[in-house]
Design a protein around this nucleic acid. Structure first.
Length: 275
DNA sequence: ATGGCTCTGTCACAGAGA
């Protein structure tokens, strides 16, 4: 069984590359993040033609996740129990005489499904923006709530994976130059501790082969030739419970998908399992 | 060569991404 995760940075902008990638790699399950389109607008025709069921969870301009599966797809969850919302900043364009409470929005950042023998969640963890931003507090709250929501499923005997764009580099080896990231999100102790507490429920970090260079980076900024210089980060992760981790036969970052015309800024992580 | 940002919504930029 082949499971993959890919932050596509817009599924509509990436559709030709996505279809090409499906045909070349034939995953049984592909998790997508940053689809940036509503469930209604999800371009699923060419995907379904290739034998995949599609679960799309989206809201339009931002965020959005999806699960494509050519195995049976059951017990779908859009979002998780207790998933925190984010309160968008007030519009400074209008000086309000009366403070109007703004509701927190539960964003399209998580979806779960049972795909054949595997229970699987895909996540797009909030970015955090900067350590002094409300978005950073939201990120930590979100990761803590995710841990509680997944606790019981991780402990089951059934193979379990949570995968996606975690927006955290687990160690300094997971960024191209730790000095560049001082005082930035993605590398703070609190973010790394939140990931460690998630793993402590019984998850192994399925560490992929990089295919080239030493570190299996999964993201490279579009700017300044950072991909050719391999100035990347490993932030797209596959966390597997013991049963699933024991079944892994191979894992790698498909950096070919980051090359050429019109790529995402993330590369897919591919995991093969013998379940 | 794998290359110097790109996406959406709206229509000249703003905001987000990490």
């Amino acid at each position: 069984m082949r499971v993959a995760t890919w932050n596509v940075n817009s599924v509509t902008a990436r559709l030709p590359r996505l279809i090409e990638w499906l045909d070349l790699n034939e995953p049984d399950v592909l998790c997508l993040q940053e689809t940036k389109c509503s469930a209604d607008a999800f371009p699923e025709e060419d995907i379904r033609k290739r034998g995949y069921e599609v679960v799309a969870h989206g809201e339009g301009r931002w965020n959005g996740v999806a699960i494509l599966s050519r195995l049976t797809l059951d017990d779908v969850s859009l979002g998780f129990d207790g998933q925190p919302g984010f309160t968008p900043a007030a519009d400074d364009g209008e000086a309000a005489l009366v403070e109007v409470p703004r509701p927190a929005v539960v964003e399209a950042r998580a979806a779960g499904a049972t795909c054949g023998p595997l229970r699987l969640w895909t996540v797009y963890v909030p970015n955090g923006r900067s350590p002094d931003s409300p978005h950073y507090a939201y990120k930590l709250e979100w990761l803590a709530a995710l841990r509680e929501a997944l606790r019981s499923e991780i402990a089951e005997k059934r193979p379990f994976i949570v995968t996606g764009d975690f927006n955290v580099a687990p160690t300094d080896d997971d960024v191209w130059d730790p000095a560049v990231f001082v005082d930035s999100t993605h590398v703070t102790e609190a973010e790394r501790a939140a990931l460690a507490e998630l793993r402590d429920l019984g998850l192994d970090d399925v560490y992929p082969r990089p295919l080239k260079y030493d570190a299996p980076f999964t993201y490279w900024d579009y700017r300044a030739g950072m991909f050719p210089k391999n100035q990347g980060m490993r932030i797209d992760l596959v966390y597997a419970n013991r049963v699933a981790a024991a079944a892994v036969t191979d894992a790698y970052v498909d950096r070919e998908a980051r090359k050429g015309k019109g790529p995402s800024d993330h590369a897919p992580v591919v995991v093969d399992l013998e379940l």
